[in-house]
Design a protein around this nucleic acid. Sequence first.
DNA 1: CGAACGCTTCGTTCGCGGCCGAAGCATCGG
DNA 2: CCGATGCTTCGGCCGCGAACGAAGCGTTCG
Lengths: 247, 247
Amino acid sequence: MVANNGLTLDLATVGHLVGDVARASMLAALLEGRALTAGELAFCANISAQTASAHLAKLVDGGLLARASQGRHRYFRLASPTVGRMLESMAVVAATETPLRHRRTSRMDEKLQYARCCYDHLAGRLGVAIADAMVAQDLILLADDGGMVSDPGRRFLERFGIATASLEAQRRCFCRPCLDWTERRPHLAGALGAALLDRMFELGWIDRIKDSRALSVSAAGARGLSDRFGIGASGRASVQPSLAATG
Amino acid sequence: MVANNGLTLDLATVGHLVGDVARASMLAALLEGRALTAGELAFCANISAQTASAHLAKLVDGGLLARASQGRHRYFRLASPTVGRMLESMAVVAATETPLRHRRTSRMDEKLQYARCCYDHLAGRLGVAIADAMVAQDLILLADDGGMVSDPGRRFLERFGIATASLEAQRRCFCRPCLDWTERRPHLAGALGAALLDRMFELGWIDRIKDSRALSVSAAGARGLSDRFGIGASGRASVQPSLAATG
DNA sequence: CGAACGCTTCGTTCGCGGCCGAAGCATCGG
DNA sequence: CCGATGCTTCGGCCGCGAACGAAGCGTTCG
């Protein structure tokens, strides 16, 4: 029976950093990948500037955040993708535990619920619908802790304009599920998720909405999503809904 | 700018649960996969029985642990593999932050440092050496957040007696890195890591050491590890050490 | 230069939560 | 039925750390 083995302490340290409502709010806000100022983060967490400052210092000191000074602003962002993945995995546990208690998503902007970026990939109803559609058509396979692309999936992505071979050579996970906070169902992350979002920007299917992580779908995007993925304007897959509804 | 969006609160709740040294010790002890009694966990955390009881109640209530009564003992285990993965990812962040501060691994049993099971796969110097050897021989590719098996790797595993096709059909990640607490380098987890450990038990290469998560390597195991993986008794790969040393 | 702004530091208050002693339930053995 | 064991509940103590007011420092304007 092993007693404290060193890293246990660090595990508690990291947990303690995330285990404060104010700090968790800040981390959640930064999970979209954008860097935010101390003031913005204070607003997110509903706390005063000086309290926020203390929290941010702890998060930087603890290695969860990185700070960058620019003029009289201090920008903060997640220290690394590793931290982002950690927060994701914690959110997964939190979500699976929480049944449906308070569905207070009503306060969230409808646009955000429909399509937004999560770190570097697509999230929201649309993100979940794309993942569902690709799973239903056997283009990808998503498990709890990883994903795989089938051979038909590879061909589909090549046609879509994504060079799967070069993606797989990257030193990051090719295909990975990421739990959607609003939908509580997985959407596509990893190199593939990022490439899909990039490609959709390239094609002019979607655009960023200013000062928000929400995304807007263009007319061309609506057509493309329907033609290629079989997804209607509601953000629900119209192909094999029975399969898409599992989970 | 989105204020508190519901799940933030749960994120803090989970963090708070892990963010206590006593609870973190218990969770770390349970990370090997085995179920432990309340008393054993109290000993691990260096706290009294009644304090441990309170902590365990919180962990169960928070969905991190599952309880099973058996006679006058209460056995606790991680509620799900998802929780295990979350703790792993937190340990990764903790480890990358902590440089080398206190290498107090000396208190840990030498056998444990050499080979032990981590959840359901092989860890310790031997686990890291196997991962290193397989990466060096291009049998697998390990990134920070996932892994892949090459075609030669598939053939290698088939020869070793692992049916890769049936593994890939499982609803769990096929090949995944897991940070080794003592070595601070990745070893093999996921379905492949579990299958490798199973197969080594089958072949009689390794055996469990009673009342410990440590594993002993048999004479046949030493031969096999050397022949198949090019790993010497020290637990270091003798094949392409230059490649194996990266990271 | 002086005022406004953004952020940090200091000092203080105060409430949550971890801790243990003591007592209360269960289960097992004789 | 009694004592031993394993675990939980109750009650009270106490310390850590989160909160804000006030003041200090650096930057950007007019």
